[in-house]
Amino acid sequence: MTTNSFDQDSKLDAPTAARRTSITPGQPWLDTNGNLIQAHGGSILYDAGTFYWYGENKEHTTGHTDTWHWGVRCYASQDLYNWEDRGVIIPPVLDDPTSPLHPSQKMDRPHIIHNRFTGQYVCWIKVMYPDDTQKSSVLVADSLLGPYRVVRSHLRPLGMSAGDFDLVVDPVDGKGYYIFERVHSELIIADLTDDYTNVTGYYSTHFPHPHPPFVREAPAYFRRGSLHYLFTSGTSGYFPNASEVAVAKTYHGPWTVLGDPHPNDETRTSYRSQICSVFKHPHKKDLFIALADRWLGDRDVDARKAAMMFETAFASGRPADFFRQYEQEDPEVFAAPDTSRAGYVWLPVRFDGDMAYLDWQDEWRIEDYE
Results as ranks from 00 to 15, higher is better:
M1I: 11
T2D: 15
S5M: 14
S5D: 12
D7E: 14
D7H: 12
L12R: 11
S22I: 03
Q27C: 09
A39T: 08
S43W: 01
A48W: 03
Y54P: 03
N57F: 03
N57V: 03
T61Q: 11
T62N: 09
T67H: 08
H69S: 12
D79R: 09
N82F: 05
V93Q: 12
S104C: 11
M107G: 03
D108W: 12
H111D: 04
H114V: 01
M128R: 13
Q134A: 13
V138W: 00
V138I: 15
V140R: 05
V151T: 05
R152S: 12
R152V: 02
R152K: 15
S153E: 15
S153C: 05
H154C: 07
H154R: 14
G159H: 11
G159I: 08
D164P: 11
V168P: 02
D170N: 14
D170C: 08
D170R: 05
D173P: 12
I179W: 00
I179K: 01
I189S: 00
A190V: 06
L192T: 06
D195Q: 05
D195M: 01
T200P: 10
T205K: 15
F207A: 01
P208W: 03
H209A: 14
H209T: 09
H211I: 04
P212H: 10
P213R: 10
R223Q: 14
S226M: 10
L227M: 10
L230S: 03
F231L: 06
T232N: 15
G234I: 05
G237S: 14
G237C: 09
A242Y: 01
A246F: 00
V247P: 01
K249M: 14
H252Q: 13
G253T: 08
L258A: 10
G259F: 09
G259H: 11
S270H: 08
Q274W: 04
I275F: 01
S277C: 03
F279V: 06
H281C: 13
I289P: 02
A292Q: 07
W295C: 06
D300K: 14
D300A: 13
A306G: 04
M308A: 10
A315F: 05
S316H: 12
P319F: 04
D321M: 11
Q325C: 10
Q325K: 15
Q328W: 02
Q328T: 10
V333W: 07
F334P: 03
A335W: 08
R341N: 10
G343F: 00
W346I: 02
P348S: 09
D354F: 04
Y357P: 08
D359M: 05
R365A: 11
I366W: 00
D368E: 13
D368I: 02
